[in-house]
Every structure is written in structure tokens, then in C-alpha cells.
Design a protein around this nucleic acid. Structure first.
Lengths: 351, 351
DNA sequence: TTGCGGTGAACAAACGATTGCCCTATGTTA
DNA sequence: TAACATAGGGCAATCGTTTGTTCACCGCAA
């Protein structure tokens, strides 16, 4: 239905290649002004846009990136995606979104389709440690960037934050408040963020001279459900924790629910600290104390790294690390939310 | 880098077309068993996948859909996207995501790129009334489906819910609770949901014999910020409302904030009802009474309608309408959340 | 020997765009 | 006047697949 070069050429009574050169503003093109204006008028009149598929075949580039994540309904990934798109769109790229629900088989399937489509690059935020999918990407020589989670040490382009440091900050905060029995809702040990945040938690305890109690660490995964279940386990202990460091804000949300069902007050009976500072964290009551990381920037920086890789053709395993910052709200310090009252409402999305 | 038909043909000592036919399992192909097995072995060994770009050029289909929405960080659209992807992926399609932030110019730009890419179809959830972009799609003969909002009456494929009915239910609920001064945080009159929900609100008031007070309707748009500002306006009235019907859950969230900053208790001092039942609604405290619509189904149904259109080639302006249902929580009826305690935590996304 | 039908594959033309190279007039210079 | 620039475009290959058509060969019957 849209017009082709051939048709335009026929209408302008020139060869298609000539139309192409005019359309692409070929600098080395010598052409009579009259011919040029005739062609240009035609281009405008028909709103000619080259067929992207044909162009992609010839130029071996599709101007499409892909983002592979567990689940877009998780606010963390939604914010990440916006960052990526905001980094990619100004350069003419559009973005395919693939949800895996954390299932390796789905990740594989998506990556294979993406490779067949010849997407120009992939941003992966659903990576496991020693992920075969990542090795496959390396082997395929598909440009890619890992975000938030990494796979093998230091050999992939990566943007994320210092998870050990973030977790240490969070735990130290709780220690500073006088807590001694501090539980940890831990991520899977198959994921870098899971391991490192647990490591930061342990390090902070050790540094403070608090003996590690294995009972206080329960694997919750990164989702709300798991957080609620793990929290239930912790609250059933003979000597339950008085404070919790949750590997993720969503996990902390699960903990809120579990605490609420038992009639516990936050933070008086149970202090909670999360990780990521998703938009939801500030809307909970009380507000969730959490480790802030610049999610949107993760995305935009990852996109720019990927584009650089695509356009220069060289894969530099550069790692961009942001320093996480502790953000104290009411879930750890009673009354910490008060100064928020009277402030303007935070920016937020359309319908 | 990936293997091509030509290379395989050379290695199997046959013509490329023969390899293609074997790979595609051409039913009418007559071939010696020995040749076939030789080729098949090669296909498996090299994990051959046809170049999607070349295939797209030849077959005039890309197996790519596009979703155009205001903002993926809004939970409504995140859920919608999941529905779409879940409907499209099993049929071999992948999905481009385009955020417009509600800016018509961005919508146009995205749609033009999409057309140049020859995506097989578009799902639009960021439509205005009498949207030129929609007319352009019609004119282009690009398969498309509108979701949630429609543009011109009844002439586009559409999936959504009965907004008048939903708004009526919400307002009647508040009337039934004894409220008389009921405010409305209204969407823009340039968007179908804005108009229709306001109409439902007015109809319910009229039916109950409550005089409409123009002061009680304030345009908030569909986002949190607007909700907070509009709520501030309403609360500054001499005779402020005791109940609010917000056009959207996100708007209601803004109203929560405004109420909280004034020290008002929900629902005792101010009852609030939202619309859409996004996941966040159930996590607010108190839980947000809202009009439930099957967001995920909106997406999966829209995807299936679009695929049907693509595969059959006929555009039937079929409209799928779901009936909205009122979901009562603590923001309108004190204590309505209590029965939730002890229930299992809701399902939710990964990290 | 001629003709015929069936096998098993090769041929070639698309699908649209890009781009290095070639060709033909019309001046220009020696 | 012959050689040569230069301007203004045309030619054709190429990207990787798909698919309608053609072709060579072999065995067999007449």
C-alpha cells in the first residue's frame, strides 16, 4: 500500500536509484536542480518512507532493540524500560519488550526469535549467574548489555549498582537503630543481586559484632508472594526478628502484608527496609525505607552503552556502577514520613 | 554471522531453494530420502533459522505487533501489555512497546516509524476522541485495535468496558452510603473514558434526585498529580464533598495524598472510589474501592482480535465490551478490608 | 527406436532499497 | 579538430528467502 521507490521513479521519469539518492540526500550526488525539485516534490507529496524491512536487509541493521525482563508489571522493570526507551528513541530505535517470568526456557525462546529477527541489540535484565543465554549471546556476537544482574564476573557490558554496599547500608541503618535480631528476606543464590545483597547484610552484621543466626535468613525470591511467605516463617520463630532487610521492595511489600495480618505495627513492632526505591515504596503506609538506585538511569545508560557498541562495532566489557543511597522513611523510623506531608505530590504516569 | 541458506546449500551440494523447501517442510516436495536426511542433519547441526528480515521482505509480514500507550510505568498499561504479549507470543509474534506520554506528536512519530517498519498490526491505548492518528491508520489500512479508549463512534475494532455503567455503579455506591455531596475527579473531555465516566456519574446523581453542583466536578486528568491538585481544589470549597468518584485509580491515589496532607481520614471524612482496579488499588491503606475491569483480558482479547484481522485480512469493526464490576474496599466502607486479613497474599511479579 | 511419465532437483524471478561503477551527451582545452 | 572533462543519470549487483516453473534423467511400454 505505501509507495515504493520504483513507483516514484516511474512517476518522476527517472531511475529508482536516483530517487533513492535524493531521498537519502546523497552528498556526492550530481543532479540537475529541476530534476531534484521534481523528485523532492514527489517525495513530500507521497510522504515516502523507505520500506524498513528492505532497508534492513540491505543495510544489515533494523533499528530495533530488545529488552528481556521477568515481568513488566513489576514497577522496577517498568521504570527501567522507560529509561531504555528514552535513551533509544531519540536515536531512531524502537524497542521490543519480552517478558520471561523468570523462566529460562522462555528467555531462550525469546532470544532465539530476536536473533532470527536480527535485532540490533539486546538488553537483558533477567539474567542468572552463569547464564547459558548470556554465553549464547556472546557466542552469537549479538551486541548486548546486562542490567541490574550480571552473569559471569566482569566480562559483560553491565550497568547496575553496588549491591553489597547497598545491602550494607540498609543493614547498618537497622543496627544503628538498635536492632539486633535482623532478618533477611533473601533472593535466590542463582542471581547476582541475591548473593551480593545477602553478602552485604552478613558483612554489616559481622562488622557490628552481631552473631549471624542462620534462622534469620529465609529465601523469599524477588516477588511479593515469596516475601509474604518468608516473612511468615520468620515471624513464627521462637525468637522472631525485630527488623527485616528485604532483598527487594516488592518482597518488602509482601512482608508488610504478613506483618499486617499478624497485627504487627511497622516500624514499632517490626522495622522493614527494602531495595530499589520503586515508586510504590513512597506510597506505602508507612513509607518504605529503602536503598535508592537510579532505575531510570540504569535504563538510559544501558541503552546508550548498547548503541555505542552497535555503532562502533566493538564490545567493551565496560561496567557502569551507581552508588546506592539509603532513603529513610517511616517503615524503619517512626514519624519519618511526617515531613512529607504538605509536599507536592510526586510526578506520576498518565491514566 | 548466522548461517544462510546459500552456505547450507553449498555444504549439502544442493540448490538453496531445495534447502528452503526442506526447512519449511514443503508438502509438495519430491526429494530423495538420502538428500533429505543430509539436509536435515545440516539444519539441525547449524541451528539454522531463516533470516527474519529477508523473510519479511518476501512474505510481506514481520510477525511484529506494536503497542502504543501513554506510559508503561502506569500499572494499568503494564497489566494491559502483559495481556497483549500473552495473547501474541503463542502465535509467534513479538511486541514493540511505544510510550507517548499522551503527547499527540509522539504518537504520530511512533506510528510513522511503525508503518515504515511494516509491523503487522498496532494496538492503540492512547487514543483521543476523533484522533487523527486513528484516521491515518484506517487510511493506511494498517490492522489495528483500540483498547480502553475509542476514537470515533463504533467504526473501529475496540475492546473496553462500559464506562457509563461503571461510573454509574461507583456513584450509586456512594449514594447508597448516604453521601449527597459527591465530587468527581474528571478525565479530559477529549478522551472517551473521561466523557463517559462523567456521564455515568451525572446520570446516577440525576436518577437519585441529587442536584448536580458544577463546582463538584473538577478536571484532573488521569494521573496522580492531577488527582492531588483537583482534590485540593475540591477540599477548599466552602461546602466540600464527603465522597469522591475518581476517573482512575491513579487519580484516586493522588486524592489519597491530598486527603492525607489535610489530615482527613478515609473513609470516615472522605470516601473515595476509583476505576480500573489496578494491582496498587488493593495495596493502599485503606484498600481502594474501585470499578474492576479485566485489564489483562483487555490485552489478550485485543491481541487475538488483531491477529484475526491480520490473518484473515478483513477489518471488522467489532467491539468487545466487558461489564465493569464494583469492588468494595475500605476507602468507601470502614472495615471493608478486614475480611482480607488472613487471606493469602495476592499474586505478583518477579523482582 | 521413439515416446512417455515420474523423480529429483535446479532455475529464476521476485520482495524494496542501496551503492559502486559505467555511459552519454555537452562543453572545454590543446 | 581531437582529446578530455564534467555534468547528469542509468545499470546492475546485492542483501536472504520463497515459490512457480523448467529441466535432465531413468525406466518402461509400444
Amino acid at each position: 500500500m505505501p509507495v515504493t521507490l520504483k513507483e516514484l521513479a516511474a512517476r518522476a521519469n527517472v531511475h529508482p536509484s536516483t530517487v533513492s539518492r535524493v531521498a537519502n540526500n546523497d552528498p556526492g550526488l550530481r543532479i540537475a536542480t529541476t530534476t531534484r525539485t521534481r523528485i523532492e516534490a514527489l517525495l513530500r507529496e507521497t510522504e515516502y518512507r523507505p520500506n524498513g524491512v528492505a532497508r534492513g536487509l540491505k543495510l544489515r541493521t533494523t533499528l530495533v532493540l530488545a529488552v528481556v525482563i521477568p515481568d513488566i508489571t513489576n514497577p522496577f522493570f517498568a521504570a527501567l524500560f522507560r529509561g531504555i526507551e528514552d535513551g533509544a528513541t531519540p536515536r531512531g530505535y524502537q524497542v521490543l519488550l519480552c517478558n520471561t517470568d523468570g523462566i529460562p526456557e522462555r528467555q531462550r525462546a525469546h532470544l532465539q526469535s530476536l536473533a532470527a529477527r536480527r535485532v540490533d541489540g539486546v538488553i537483558l535484565a533477567s539474567t542468572f549467574l552463569k547464564d547459558p543465554a548470556v554465553r549464547w549471546l556472546r557466542h552469537q556476537r549479538t551486541p548486548y548489555v546486562l542490567v541490574n544482574r550480571f552473569s559471569d564476573d566482569g566480562i559483560d557490558p553491565f550497568v547496575g549498582s553496588d549491591d553489597v554496599m547497598g545491602a550494607t547500608l540498609a543493614t547498618q541503618h537497622l543496627i544503628g537503630l538498635g536492632h539486633v535480631r535482623i532478618g533477611h528476606l533473601a533472593g535466590q543464590p542463582t542471581v547476582s543481586t541475591g548473593i551480593l545483597r545477602r553478602k552485604g547484610y552478613s558483612a554489616a552484621l559481622a562488622e557490628a559484632g552481631i552473631a549471624a543466626d542462620p534462622e534469620l535468613v529465609v529465601e523469599s525470591g524477588f516477588i511479593e508472594e515469596g516475601g509474604a511467605q518468608a516473612m511468615d516463617r520468620l515471624l513464627s520463630l521462637n525468637d522472631p526478628p525485630t527488623a527485616i532487610f528485604a532483598v527487594t521492595d516488592m518482597t518488602a511489600v509482601g512482608a508488610y502484608g504478613a506483618a499486617r495480618r499478624r497485627g504487627l505495627r511497622i516500624p514499632e513492632d517490626l522495622a522493614i527496609v527494602g531495595y530499589n526505591d520503586i515508586p510504590l515504596a513512597g506510597r506505602l503506609i508507612p513509607g518504605l525505607t529503602t536503598v535508592h538506585v537510579p532505575i531510570h538511569e540504569f535504563g538510559s545508560v544501558a541503552a546508550r552503552m548498547l548503541l555505542e557498541q552497535i555503532e562502533t562495532g566493538v564490545l567493551t566489557p565496560r561496567r557502569v556502577m551507581f552508588s546506592p543511597q539509603l532513603l529513610v522513611r517511616g517503615s524503619s523510623v517512626a514519624g519519618a514520613d511526617e515531613h512529607l506531608a504538605g509536599r507536592p505530590a510526586p510526578r506520576s504516569p498518565a491514566e
